[in-house]
Amino acid sequence: MLADLFAKRLVIVSGKGGVGKTVVSSALGLLARERGKRVLLVKMDDQGRTAQLFGTEPLSGRVSTLRDGISAINLDPVTIAADYLQRQLRVRRLVRHVVNSRLFQNWFRVSPAIKEMICLGKVLSLVEETSWWRKAPVYDLVIFDAPATGHGLGLLKLPEQASKLLLGPMRTGALAVGALLRDATRTALLLVTIPEEMPVNETIHFYEAARGLDMPLAGVVLNQAAPRRFEVDDPDALAQDLTPEVLTQAAATLFAERASEVPPEAFRAAARASCQRRALTERYASELEQAVDLPRVEVPFVFTESFGTAELERVASHLREVIAASEAAR
């Protein structure tokens, strides 16, 4: 299912805040680039995360290059709106006056839908942007790291609602955005979640709503999945298996001559925690299995002190293996 994403023009990555959307979309960007695609990562409200992962300067409201063939932009609604109004109205000084006024800024901030609609419009124009000398799209694949699902769903419903309310060029724009979002040949929607109650509930809710809206859902990524370290699932059964001999052997393997200082409980507790964590991952995986009829990929939790470029590469190489395996299976 992941391999199919690279044949699209737009991949929308959606999920609750803190589930690792930025990491997943960045890893997909790396893999798409390996396949020769020119990639653009589109963010909203990035807060320096992408820069951290790629070791670059923070993103701005204009397209910047992260690596050869991978660009990124952090959408800023006010800048886009000002650009847009200037193009439409051609009265620069007054537009600047209006855009800079406190009223406009406040109205813009509290007004439902307008700024989101403007951002979606920008996504559309980035997807459709063509290079005149190559007569081809500037970006083969746009990966849109959508805002947290609570708002993300509103975002996806927006074009339809907006096209009912709007007039003139914005209406045409809204209709075009709506068509792009629904177009399964160009667009895919990827859900990202983690094995915890609230994110999984939100994913199920989002899935049901998005299916109702006929969105081209492509799959679910269960990120931060606990790795399976033991054959047994039950922590009590595992405790039975952990004989004094095994514990001594483990301590000797890792601590050599200091093994006698290690209390067996240190290994027992770690084993129990690992087993329970895996059980939780499996519980949420099966909840997703039952409620969400989409292909699912697990991305293992990365045990690390800090998450940077090396950790991003690890996630990417895991996904590369998953894709290779699924392509081999075909």
Binding site: P227, R229, F230, E231, L242, L247, A270, A271, A273, S274
Partner: peptide, 16 residues
């Protein structure tokens, strides 16, 4: 496998 799992689980936990 049991010993291997135990070592991995322990290192996971200590890293975390």
């Amino acid at each position: 496998p049991l010993l291997r799992g135990l070592l991995e689980a322990f290192v996971d936990h200590e890293l975390q």
